[in-house]
Design a protein around this nucleic acid. Structure first.
Length: 570
RNA sequence: UGCCUCAUUGUGUAACGGUAGCACAAUUGCCUCUGGAGCAAUUUGUCAAGGUUCGAAUCCUUGUGAGGCAACCA
């Protein structure tokens, strides 16, 4: 279970465009031949499966080229950030199996960013603007028409510096002043029309407190952070594509100011490329909406097993290996695709199949009585703990006169290819014996008890004459079984149709019904299940003992995934 | 409408001008003391129209469709 090394991209099959890009750069002798990437979340929420993809890309590309990857808190907007999120971010990324080579806070570079901005002013490349936001909107123009110059665009550097410093000291109210880069008011790219690079925010910053009253914008801060850290390849999602010229503009200014990192005599010039974010069917990944669920108390928290957060998936029982495998399989492209949730679940099953401990459990019980097995007599059943892994050993279960079996395993009138319990049909009670149903007892329309006899000659369920038994049943002893609570979660936001949430009111789709807790009968061994451990309830699905909300007398299990449509929730 | 980007089977992703392949899903068969797993097989695809070329998913042109940008968010 322990992860000592950073996970690598093992597959040699996928040559996506980012990999190609880096290979070409390396071949062209750019930079110093070292690949440095970064994962730059804003600490304002917990990361979800979509971020996990980005983490795998950023760390994976660095690992593939024996490079380095930095983890950086992009905390340039103080209003929603906190250290709690920083800690969770680190925890989740570590859990996913990655180790960063450097950790940084963008806010630790505020001083340097400030110097860069002042130098911009001195060079006539930035100015303080006093237009209101509404006015600015009008001045900026629309994409089809050029914008107009701000009235203060050509103010002197000295005047600008004075005002800029006053912005920092809190002399002005929010929205009254901002620093803009002086670029091109008629550019077809709106981001070039003198973009704002510093704005006044009077909220205290979680690290720098009230030291600053204005903060750099993402478009200004991000390339600086990359450059000063010596990042060579900066990968982000598609929506930043139109920001790239501005990213390059800032890098050019840094070059003019001789601030680019030099390694091995080579100037490191970061570049940005964009890839499509992950969209997963039935799943909504929007920090804003996830936050709403948490704040409105619709879920237990960011780590609720219904949440698509990394923490939620961890608690639900997904493994980091499965998530990494998934990220590897979905590939990287610029096509805005929608990945089928079935692939994620397959990855989880595939991984859990190798490691999960097998246990018998009955979720929807009906009583089965072996009439020729006297009260107090027990049959031993020896079963492997994991057939996929013989080293997991075996355990011995006691089969008694009265058992619980799954209600679905009995049919009053058997259907055509039904090989389980029906009158006259011989089945195997897994590991224990062969059983033939003779009759059943009804209470009204409901069958409440199944009766039959076992074959004493067929020890452990192996018929003496070698006759074929088509059905094998799972069972637990009525007297020895243990009752546990099992939580069956719907997928988060289990919408009728994938990704359809017209008005954004999808949170309403998450009703209390989306989690059902049922009482299940399990083998005695599960009474001491280890929280966080994975179990396959045979023929039902994968379950994980919950480490958070355990009952005092027994563990609570979360359903991780079902086996292939073998079990439909009641 | 201005600029930018994208389009390969149901889904996702390969094929750097030379046989359209892989995985998930689906279907079928085999096997099994998990109707799971495993094994085997099958079905379905280059958005459209032109052009360049011996040869185009790939290059060019036009069109169509989808997405992004017009926060003092990231």
């Amino acid at each position: 279970m322990e992860e000592n090394t950073t996970a690598t991209v093992e597959s040699d099959t996928s040559r996506h465009f980012l990999r190609q890009w880096i290979e070409d750069d390396l071949a062209a002798g750019k930079n110093d031949g070292t690949v440095v990437t970064r994962f730059p979340p804003e600490p304002n929420g917990w990361i979800h499966i979509g971020h996990a993809k980005a983490v795998c890309v950023d760390f994976g590309m660095a690992a593939l080229f024996n490079g380095r990857c930095h983890l950086r808190m992009d905390d340039t907007n103080p209003s929603k950030e906190s250290d709690d999120f920083v800690e969770e971010l680190k925890k989740d990324i570590t859990w996913l199996g990655f180790q960063w080579d450097e950790f940084s806070f963008a806010c630790d570079r505020f001083d340097e960013m400030w110097d860069i901005a002042e130098e911009l002013i001195r060079r006539g490349q930035a100015y303080v603007c006093e237009l209101s936001q509404e006015d600015w909107k009008a001045y900026r123009g629309i994409p089809t028409e050029p914008g107009r110059f701000s009235p203060t665009r050509d103010r002197s550097a000295e005047e600008n510096l004075t005002l800029f410093r006053q912005m920092r000291e809190g002399v002005f109210a929010e929205g009254t002043h901002c620093l803009r880069a002086k670029i091109d008011m008629s550019s077809p790219n709106i981001h070039f029309r003198d973009p704002v690079i510093y704005r006044i925010v009077n909220a205290p910053h979680y690290h720098t407190g009230t030291q600053w009253h204005c903060y750099p914008m993402y478009d200004f801060a991000h390339p600086i952070e990359d450059a000063l850290e010596g990042v060579t390849h900066s990968m982000c999602t598609l929506e930043f594509e139109v920001h790239r010229p501005l990213y390059d503009w800032v890098i050019d200014r840094l070059a003019e100011q001789h601030r680019l990192v030099v390694r091995d005599g080579k100037t490191i010039r970061p570049q940005q490329r964009e890839f499509a974010r992950l969209n997963l069917s039935y799943t909504v990944m929007s920090k804003r909406l996830l936050r709403q669920l948490v704040e409105e108390g619709r879920v237990e928290g960011w780590d609720d097993p219904r949440m698509p957060t990394v923490a939620g998936m961890r608690r639900r029982g997904y493994t980091p290996e499965a998530i990494r495998e998934f990220c590897e399989r979905i590939g990287v492209s610029k096509y805005e695709s929608q990945t089928d949730l079935a692939l994620l679940e397959w990855c989880v099953r595939n991984d859990l199949n190798r490691r999960a401990t097998r246990r018998m459990a009955v979720l929807n019980p009906i009583k089965l009585v072996i009439d020729n097995l006297p009260e107090g007599v027990e049959l031993n059943a020896e079963l492997p703990n994991n057939p996929e892994n013989p080293e997991a050993g075996t355990r011995i279960l006691k089969c008694t006169r009265e058992l619980w079996i799954e209600r679905d395993d009995f049919m009053e009138i058997p259907a055509k290819k039904f090989f389980r319990v029906s009158v006259g049909n011989e089945v195997r009670l897994r590991g224990a014996c062969l059983f033939t149903c003779t009759h059943f007892v009804k209470d009204g329309d409901t069958v409440i008890e199944i009766h039959g006899t076992y074959d004493p000659e067929a020890k452990g369920g192996n018929p003496a004459d070698g006759r074929k038994i088509k059905g094998t049943l799972h069972w637990v002893s009525v007297t020895k079984a243990y009752a546990v609570d099992v939580r069956l979660y719907d997928r988060l936001f289990s919408l009728e149709k994938p990704m359809e949430c017209p008005s954004g009111n999808f949170v309403d789709a998450l009703t209390p019904d989306s989690v059902k807790t049922i009482r299940a009968w399990v083998e005695p061994a599960l009474a001491t299940a280890v929280p966080g451990e994975h179990y396959q309830f045979e023929r039902v699905g994968y379950f994980t003992a919950d480490s958070v909300a355990s009952r005092p007398d027994a563990p609570v299990f979360n359903r991780t995934v079902t086996l292939k449509d073998s079990f439909k929730t009641a």
